[in-house]
Nucleic acid binder design. Structure first.
Ligand SMILES: Nc1ncnc2c1ncn2[C@@H]1O[C@H](COP(=O)(O)OP(=O)(O)OP(=O)(O)O)[C@@H](O)[C@H]1O
Length: 725
DNA sequence: GCGCGTTCCGTTTTT
DNA sequence: CGGAACGCGC
């Protein structure tokens, strides 16, 4: 074995993994394998191999990850082998981030301004809601209503297939060509939706904005139209390929035009069908890339035998799936725990106490950060959070992009968006009267319609009124709008001097006296102000090296503000959290957010019917796969629980155990004896040999038995006291 | 135009 | 039960 990481990166790979890493770069490759088989590890090693063995320059490699977090982790792993400089040259990120990055540079090739804003789902809904008003009466004649989110979802699905508004309209008329009797209403809805799609696009273009799907659609257009945008690319690698949609697939094809592509994926882990992901892309790749090779990895390195056995039994119930072999050389370990509790309160309390018990029984081999509670949806986190808090266990809740959706964060972001892109009217509407300046609905509507008549943006109109270049509008606003214009101009001036985003936020807070505004308008201003501070610290952490294309020419570099706004729209909470922070707290997250991650101990509450599968789920099998993904995040111990009665939407509902689990236990009851039960109801008593198994699976030193005794005694004393008072 | 009280509604999953 | 939307009175 060599000490030099540039030589030893192949050493820890098994034969199949090695074969995948060394596979000829010019032959398209699919690495298909179950959870924990080292797919991501192989992808990372392959990048190193392409660079050091095949002499492909780092800047010619495009690595697509599913989340920003995954990109950061991969970057960190690569850093240890390749060094900071070279890693920063690899074009790495999500499809969305990569597209955004290149669209800044080549905006003109697809008719965009370089300072385009990214419109989030909330703003999109508002835009659609506005357009929807026109169709209210028409809908009312049929006693129908149409929700903005359903329109947006249709539009999003169309964009995921690469359909423009016009194409979508054609699709609609095709679909309804032989109008079935009784389908008049859905035809009307489809038509109205198609018309709104057109209106919505117009608004986005007018406001110099792209929505999330547009990043992909315009990115694809740009890569196709402008050869310079793709000619740098000598190899494309895509992680979590089973969850790509058609537009993303086309992006891969376009960027990987040299046919040098490597993808990794696992059909059993496809859980984003609801977002138009298509597993079929795997088969499609075989036809579009002739000679595509497949490599299967069958050894799981992550989990104990019994966790893998239970998970495999679970996914095996999906009878449409292709069977796959997956084994582990790890010991069996403790059977996954499956238990019923009366209500969610007892369930959560159990998890908290069990975490404490395990920390003691493992003599500190397990810390808070080694535990994850994985949920079907965010709302389930409430009880868990408070139960952990009550026991003094530190935790962090990964709420995806929700942090950036809080009103105090959105307010400040809107000021900055408007600073960067005065045409981004959604931001103008949000903040022109925040804090109150006496510009209410009437004035606002008047501003917007006047601006439309003059064919300029409301922001520019406001500036012109303030400058006296344009007459004031009906309810006079010149005085009131003056403060606002001055604020935006100060921010703009500072941004042009390439001020740091954190400083710009502080400046903004000062200029609008935002803390005062929060105090006046919200009782919970304290926690809201904490979010403001968190936004500042997020801004301080955004490095410009990772989110922009390196360019010697300073004039071609994006302003720090623009890069910050982009990452705030594209990143999720905890994306760039330090390992330190993650280590000291229990993680609470959704199963979706847990994709690709692993923890020594995983707990999944509410494994009930109507949760798994979720009662409104369109695709039942996808729900099963979701539970499978969650279970396979566990390395050493897995806990599933369900309750008899759960408070849902205010009233108590009777709940039953998830059918996915019942199917498995029924099967095993027939086939095996009681001791071979795939799940157990008994709380695992952690003895010395169990600690040994854990230390083996986690590759950590086993604790000193004396330390264990001491920690257990401490816990006993503490819990006796708690019992007394 | 603003602030407060009321009702009503309905709980996915995310870039 | 908790948040967003609405409506009423100032
Ligand atoms: N050859 C190996 N030797 C030792 N450990 C390995 C090996 N390959 C992978 N591992 C370990 O197994 C775990 C899972 O690896 P990785 O995350 O790459 O799997 P994966 O296939 O991407 O999983 P998933 O599909 O669940 O995302 C990691 O902790 C990794 O370090």
């Amino acid at each position: 074995m060599s000490e030099d990481p540039l030589c030893s990166y192949l050493d820890s790979l098994n034969p199949a993994q090695l074969q995948a890493v060394e596979h000829p770069p010019s032959i398209p490759l699919q690495i298909l394998a179950g959870p924990g088989s080292g797919k991501t590890k192989v992808l990372t090693s392959r990048i190193v191999h392409l660079i050091v063995r095949h002499g492909i320059s780092a800047s010619s490699i495009c690595a697509v990850t599913f989340t920003n977090k995954a990109a950061n982790e991969m970057r960190e792993r690569l850093m240890k082998i390749l060094g900071k400089q070279r890693v920063s040259e690899v074009r790495m990120g999500t499809f969305h981030a990569l597209c955004a990055m290149f669209l800044r540079k080549y905006a003109h090739t697809v008719g965009l301004e370089r300072n385009f804003s990214i419109c989030d789902t909330d703003e999109s809904k508002k835009i659609i809601g506005k357009h929807l008003e026109k169709y209210k009466e028409q809908l009312a004649t049929q006693n129908m209503t149409l929700k903005p989110e359903s329109v947006l979802s249709t539009i999003s699905k169309a964009k995921a297939k690469g359909h423009t508004a016009e194409q979508h309209l054609i699709e609609v008329s095709k679909k309804f060509k032989d109008l079935p009797v009784g389908a008049e209403e859905s035809f009307m809805v489809a038509n109205i939706t198609a018309e709104i799609y057109e209106d919505y696009e117009k608004t986005l273009r007018q406001t110099n904005a792209l929505d999330f799907d547009d990043l992909l659609v315009f990115g694809l257009k740009m890569f196709k139209a402008h050869e310079d945008a793709v000619s740098w690319c000598k190899h494309v690698l895509v992680d979590e390929f089973q969850d790509t949609n058609i537009t993303q697939y086309d992006l891969m094809r376009t960027i990987g035009y040299r046919q040098c592509v490597t993808i990794v994926g696992d059909p059993d882990q496809s859980i984003y069908g609801w977002r138009s992901a298509e597993v079929e892309n795997l088969a499609k790749m075989q036809t579009h890339f002739p000679g595509t090779a497949q490599i299967f990895l069958e050894q799981n390195y992550r989990s104990t035998g019994s966790i893998l056995r239970a998970s495999s039994a679970l996914i095996a119930q999906d009878d449409k799936r292709i069977r796959k072999s997956l084994y582990t050389s790890h010991p069996l370990g403790k059977s996954p725990f499956l238990k019923l509790f009366p209500t969610e309160t007892e369930e959560a309390a159990f998890m908290a106490l069990e975490i404490k018990r395990l920390v003691a029984l493992t003599g500190g081999m397990l810390q808070w950060g080694d535990f994850a509670v994985l949920l079907r949806f965010n709302a389930l986190s409430r009880v868990v959070e408070s139960a952990l808090q009550k026991e003094g266990i530190p935790s962090r809740v990964l709420r995806g992009h929700k942090f950036f959706e809080r009103l105090e964060v959105k307010d400040l972001l809107a000021y900055l968006q408007l600073t960067d892109n005065p045409e981004f009217t959604p931001a103008f509407i949000r903040v022109v009267n925040t804090p109150s300046r006496g510009i209410g609905e009437k004035s606002l509507l008047e501003l917007i319609s006047t601006a439309e008549k003059c064919r300029i943006s409301p922001m520019l109109l406001a500036e012109r009124i303030f400058d006296g270049k344009t007459p004031d509008i009906k309810p006079p606003v010149k005085r009131k709008i003056g403060t606002f214009v001055k604020i935006i101009r100060s921010l703009r001036e500072s941004a042009e001097k390439r001020s740091l985003p954190a400083d710009l936020i502080r400046l903004c807070i000062d200029l609008i006296d935002y803390s005062e505004h929060l105090k006046k308008t919200h009782d919970d201003w304290e926690s809201r102000y904490e979010n403001v501070l968190e936004l500042i610290s997020f801004a301080a952490d955004v490095g410009d090296d990772i989110s922009s294309i390196h360019d010697e020419d300073d004039r071609n570099r994006e302003t720090p503000l623009r890069l910050f706004l982009q990452s705030s729209m594209l990143s999720t909470e905890g994306d760039n959290e330090s390992a330190n922070d993650a280590e000291s707290r229990v993680t609470i997250a959704t199963c979706h957010a847990a994709k690709g991650l692993e923890w020594p101990v995983v707990m999944i509450p509410s494994v009930e019917d109507d949760t798994f599968p979720f009662y409104r789920a369109e695709d039942r099998e996808e729900e099963r796969r979701l539970l499978y993904v969650a279970c396979t995040r566990a390395q050493g111990l897995l806990y599933l629980s369900h309750v008899s009665r759960r408070k849902v939407a205010g009233d108590k509902k009777t709940r039953t155990r998830s059918p996915f689990i019942s199917q498995v236990t029924n099967l095993y009851r027939v086939e095996s004896g009681p001791n071979l039960d795939i799940f157990t109801e008994d709380e695992p008593d952690i003895a010395r040999e169990d600690r040994t198994v854990l230390s083996q699976v986690l590759q950590r030193p086993a604790p000193d038995e004396e330390v264990v005794d001491q920690r257990v005694a401490e816990l006993f004393v503490l819990s006796c006291r708690a019992g007394l008072y």
